[in-house]
Every structure is written in structure tokens, then in C-alpha cells.
Design a protein around this nucleic acid. Structure first.
Length: 258
DNA sequence: ATGCCCGGAGCGTCCGGA
């Protein structure tokens, strides 16, 4: 059994006590982190290694930043940027092999405000991501693309959909891009396990969103066809959002029969 | 329509986030 998780930490150094507490409790085998908000030299590799996690990371000062952690000391980095735009300096993607699977860890752009250049950047990034995903499927190996997609795929994934129709996380162009991705042959793991449930992975710091359970489902696991049949469990560690000094996202996990 | 809360940078008060 392999337990794989994704967690947008919103600042890895400010969040380190919470991250370590959750890792000790949840004991995932593989973890993808987003929004490190730290330059490469400030990534806390040592305390993570003390807990038994090897890591690779793609950091950047102040913003973005992604990392892959694995209990197994076999991380083989494949890339640390999405192909298709050499001008794109954001640290939003890192990809590696561990446990004989390709793990793609992503932090898709937020895209607000809509309309505007940030929204166009998001659509463009999504397009590049989808063509990379298609190439990964063609390799015919087990792949998981997981992380913060900054998309609520359907109305079930939003506490109040009508408020979000012109939001960059829910605009029809963005939902359409996510649907095109799924149509390549990927399985949305949490939705596969719970077809009709409201599932949230993010609660804004503003307006007492957590207290009102005004959540969004933004963090997703996309499984290649090889892995879809091995999915045995999954969930959101919602209680972590209620801890002191919590991120605005909660950790999400799946278990594979491997 | 706006502010509400956060982390980071850096030391006053922005910006970006979703």
C-alpha cells in the first residue's frame, strides 16, 4: 500500500511545525507541497530528513515553489519546469520518479482578477500543462499529476457556485480546460471515490470561511489509467485546517494498492 | 463596493493570494 498526499502549505518555513506534526500523524509515503514561498537555500530539508523524508524542490523567493518528498531514497528528478515557455520564471512544476511512478507536482496559477493578463497566463499555463500531460500518457507508465490546480471542476466543489461564475478559479474556460485534461484519460481520484459528495480542500482566511464551512475543492489527484484501478481510499485531513497557524488549504491523500 | 485574514519582505506598509 502506498499513501500519497498533496498539501499547499502557504509558506513552508512559517508552516514547518504544522507540516511536521501532520507528517508524523499521517505518515504518507510520498508528498507534494506547493506555495513554499521560500528561495531554494531556505528549504528545510534537514528537519524533513530527520522525519525520514528525502526531498527535491523548486523554490523561488517570496512566491510559488513546489517540492516532492518521498520516504524512499530513490527520487529521480525528471524536470523542474513545464515545457513551452522559456520566459516563464514561476516555480510551479516539478516532476520525479519514485516508487516506479512518475509524480508531477503542480501549482497552477490563480488567474485572478478576471479578465486580465493574469487570467490569460493561467489559461496559457493550463494549455502547456495539458500538452505535457498528453505526452506523459503516451509513455504508457504509471503517472500521478497532483497538486493545487486552482480549479473547482464542478458546482459540487464550491460552497456557493453562483458567487464564483466570474472568478478565475471557476470560469468556464478554466473548467473546460480541466475537462479536456480528464478526457485524455485521467481519473480525478477523490471524485472517483466520492461521486456525489461535497468535498473541500481550501477555506479562505477571510470572512470566517472555515467557521462557515465556505470551502472550495482545489487540490486534485489525476491518475493515469494504470493507477486508476489501484485506488483504494482517499480523503481530506480537514482537521488540520483547524489547527493553530494552519494553511488555508488542508492536506489531501490517497492510498494505492501497490 | 469594500474590507475582512494571512505569509513574505523587511521595518512601514505593501503585494499576492483565491
Amino acid at each position: 500500500m502506498l499513501k500519497i498526499a498533496t498539501y499547499n502549505v502557504n509558506g513552508i518555513n512559517g508552516r514547518l511545525p504544522v507540516l511536521l506534526r501532520w507528517l508524523k500523524e499521517a505518515k504518507p509515503d510520498i508528498v507534494c507541497l506547493q506555495e513554499l514561498k521560500a528561495p531554494p537555500e531556505k528549504f528545510p530539508a534537514t528537519p524533513l530528513l530527520d522525519l525520514g523524508y528525502h526531498s527535491i524542490w523548486h523554490g523561488q523567493k517570496s512566491w510559488n515553489g513546489v517540492a516532492i518528498l518521498s520516504k524512499k531514497n530513490d527520487l529521480q528528478e525528471l524536470r523542474r519546469a513545464l515545457p513551452g515557455d522559456p520566459e516563464d520564471m514561476h516555480s510551479r512544476y516539478i516532476e520525479a520518479i519514485t516508487n516506479k511512478m512518475i509524480i508531477g507536482c503542480l501549482y497552477l496559477p490563480n488567474g485572478n482578477p478576471y479578465p486580465g493578463p493574469k487570467f490569460e497566463y493561467k489559461l496559457n499555463w493550463f494549455k502547456r500543462f495539458n500538452s505535457h500531460a498528453r505526452k506523459l500518457l503516451a509513455h504508457d507508465v504509471p503517472v500521478i499529476l497532483l497538486g493545487d490546480y486552482n480549479v473547482m471542476p464542478t458546482e459540487l466543489d464550491v460552497y456557493k457556485p453562483e458567487k464564483y461564475v466570474d472568478d478565475a478559479l471557476f470560469r468556464k474556460e478554466v473548467r473546460a480546460a480541466f475537462q479536456r485534461l480528464l478526457k485524455q484519460g485521467w481519473t480525478d481520484a477523490l471524485r472517483q471515490l466520492y461521486p456525489n459528495q461535497r468535498i473541500y480542500t481550501f477555506w479562505d482566511y477571510l470572512r470566517n470561511a472555515w467557521g462557515r464551512d465556505a470551502g472550495l475543492r482545489l487540490d486534485h489527484f489525476l491518475l493515469s489509467p494504470h493507477l486508476a484501478g489501484t485506488l483504494i481510499d482517499g480523503g481530506v485531513d480537514k482537521h488540520v485546517r483547524g489547527w493553530e497557524k494552519a494553511s488555508d488549504h488542508a492536506p489531501v491523500w490517497i492510498k494505492l494498492d501497490k
